[in-house]
Write a protein that binds this DNA or RNA. Structure first.
Lengths: 147, 147
DNA sequence: ACTTTAAATAGAACTCATTTCTATTTAAGT
DNA sequence: ACTTAAATAGAAATGAGTTCTATTTAAAGT
């Protein structure tokens, strides 16, 4: 595992530090997305001292390099991060348990055509976030923490 | 014009105040989306005293009632608002001039099917924001203020 | 028009996520 | 081991958005 992260970091010209590896490790092993604070909390269990700015700095660097990705929550527009060294995809966010699943569906091509045809513009990127209720929460009918 | 806004406000059970009308007026007559601060700046030209909290409160109330809508900017995730007493649609945001155009394209149905079929989940809402360069900025080749 | 009252507002103070700054530590190439 | 640029801790600053309280105002009833 560590070897894996080291390889990733080396290929990005980032120094291989214990904290970078820990951040990647936390994100990789989490199916839901995490706020910087949540990552910080987990880090503090592993390290005697970690600064929150370190978390922010690393998350920013890693997301700039497309190793992890950002999600903005509709309510309080805080940053949330999610691991993804994968190709383009979208997120299905459960409004109840906040779990995130990847959606391998994308209408980018149609979108591009529409924008080209009707607006004469050029699409560079897009954000698609789908909110709803996941399998588990639908079964439990525990749909309390609404958005 | 004023009559129009008054009717809207009355139908929403909101008191008809000069400031509410002014906010609606500013948004309706702007093709681009505006930050609360930008709206505040314009308001201060019309009123001797306006509080920024008033702007926030009203924008929130109006967007809850779907008279205007929110956009979160990919960079600094600040709130931006855009007038829209229209049905469901999405935004094409120019990365250069920040102009916003409505996109009358939505893949919600396919999305719903995908989430149902592959995830057994239920879609409640979604956010689609498309970033790119608009006609004008493509012509000018003035694509400096990157993301 | 005059009263009444609940909603709306101004302005100050506060909150809290994110960023900046500076001195110290550390990874990694020589 | 030595060197140096990158990474970090911790404190302090920033700034968007919110809360609080006293005052004003829209609008419903008289």
């Amino acid at each position: 595992m560590n070897t894996d992260f080291s390889t990733i970091l080396r290929s990005l010209n980032l120094k291989i530090t214990p904290k970078r590896i820990a951040i990647l490790d936390i994100l990789m092993n989490e199916s839901s997305y995490l706020s910087p604070e949540e990552i910080w909390t987990r880090m503090k269990k592993q390290f005697r001292s970690v600064g929150l700015p370190t978390i922010y700095r690393n998350l920013e660097e890693l997301s700039e390099r497309n190793i992890i990705s950002k999600v903005t929550h509709p309510n309080r527009q805080l940053y949330y991060y999610f691991c993804a060294n994968r190709s383009h995809h979208h997120h299905f966010v459960c409004l109840s348990c906040r779990n995130v699943e990847d959606i391998n569906f994308c209408a980018l091509d149609e979108l591009r055509r529409e924008v080209k045809r009707k607006h004469n513009g050029k699409v560079i990127s897009h954000i698609l976030q789908v909110n709803g209720y996941c399998r588990n929460c639908l079964n439990k009918e525990g749909k309390d923490n609404e958005i």
